[in-house]
Amino acid sequence: MTEKKHENPAHWDETAANYEATAHPFTSQFAEDALARVTLTPGMQVLDVAAGTGALTLAAARSGAYVLATDFSAGMVARIAAAKLPNVDAEVMDGQALHLPDASFDVSFSIFGVIMFPDWRRGLAEMARVTKPGGLGVLATWQSEGAATFLLLSQIRRRLFPRLDGKTRLPEGAVALGDPEWLSAAMVDAGFAAPEIEQVTHDFVLDVSQLDRPETLFGMSPDWVALDAEQQAAVVEEVRLMADGRSVLPVPSTALIAVAGR
């Protein structure tokens, strides 16, 4: 099986700085939504799986709880460690095989992380394994065709090139867990109780000036890679038309936030 770009930690190491500047402020909104659905207190043990640059971790640390952030990208982990928060540790770790004891965390989070795993079922099972009985698992997933530039590109691609295969090329986990029924069933299969699932929507604010370097916006999307140079240029022009002279283009993006007992 050919490794995909999002499955390679070196790719995330290289893009960590750009991710922190662009994706982190966007995902932070959903991290705050997830935190609003649980109560964290000093003395609690919290896990953040596939933490990225720490949108959830840094917000959760405000509660005074101890937070362990894990990610398979050393570049991402270094960004979290740079905050030097006394109640936060950040470690390089594969979320599909956590080197952590059973039942060791009060709350385990994954904000748009497990959905990217090649073996997302194993990722969910690992979250359940390390969560204490009576604790909580909290998962954020994208609904439908993803979010932000992935969603925008999918919509434009379908409009401009309807004869191309219209199926999403998102990771399998992102597709499966983007459906509330599938998400609920998957969490139960992993060892959690039936979750409460809510939809939340925030705008991704696309900086139109970045269209001068479209790879920075769309390069991670398989939908972009599948287009030839002429088609890519047409996508860029379509985004400019949608922006209609504005410096930013809001892209409403909807997530599912699931909270389940252990």
Rank of each mutant, 00 (worst) to 15 (best):
T149V: 10
V88G: 00
V67D: 04
T22N: 11
A55P: 07
T57Q: 01
G43F: 05
E20S: 10
V236R: 02
G178C: 09
P250C: 09
A21R: 15
V175H: 10
G261Y: 08
P252T: 04
L68E: 07
R158F: 02
T39I: 08
V205D: 03
R159L: 15
L153V: 10
A125T: 09
D48V: 02
T201P: 07
T41P: 00
A255F: 04
M242G: 07
T149C: 04
G64K: 10
A147S: 08
A16N: 07
M242R: 15
D228K: 05
G173P: 07
S154M: 12
L227K: 05
L100Y: 13
S253M: 05
G191M: 10
P25F: 03
Q96W: 04
W182V: 13
L40R: 04
E230M: 12
L136K: 06
E91I: 15
V138A: 08
Y66T: 08
T27N: 01
E196F: 14
G178K: 03
M93F: 08
P195M: 01
D179L: 08
H99T: 13
R240S: 09
P42G: 06
L170H: 03
Q155P: 09
A174P: 02
R240L: 11
D223V: 08
A243C: 14
S184Y: 08
G261D: 11
L124A: 00
L227S: 02
L124S: 06
A234N: 10
A190E: 05
E198H: 14
Y19H: 09
G173D: 04
N87M: 07
E172Y: 07
N87S: 13
E20A: 12
T2N: 14
H6A: 09
G191F: 05
F218G: 00
T201Y: 04
W120H: 11
W182T: 14
Q231G: 08
L206S: 01
Q143P: 06
G146L: 01
S221Y: 09
A78C: 10
A65F: 08
R79N: 00
A55D: 08
F117D: 01
F72H: 02
L160W: 05
A69K: 01
L170M: 08
V259Y: 06
P9C: 13
V259W: 01
V175R: 12
D228C: 06
A83R: 09
S209D: 11
M127R: 06
E32K: 13
T201M: 12
A10M: 13
E196D: 15
L256S: 06
A69D: 06
A50R: 04
D189Y: 11
D94C: 06
G245V: 12
A97N: 15
D223F: 07
L227W: 03
I257D: 02
A23L: 13
A23N: 08
R169E: 11
V200Y: 01
T22W: 03
T131L: 00
E3I: 15
T201H: 03
D189Q: 15
L217K: 00
E230R: 15
L211Q: 12
D244V: 07
A260S: 00
L241Q: 15
H24R: 15
S104A: 07
A83M: 11
D189V: 15
L68P: 02
A78S: 12
A176E: 15
A185Q: 09
L124V: 00
T39S: 12
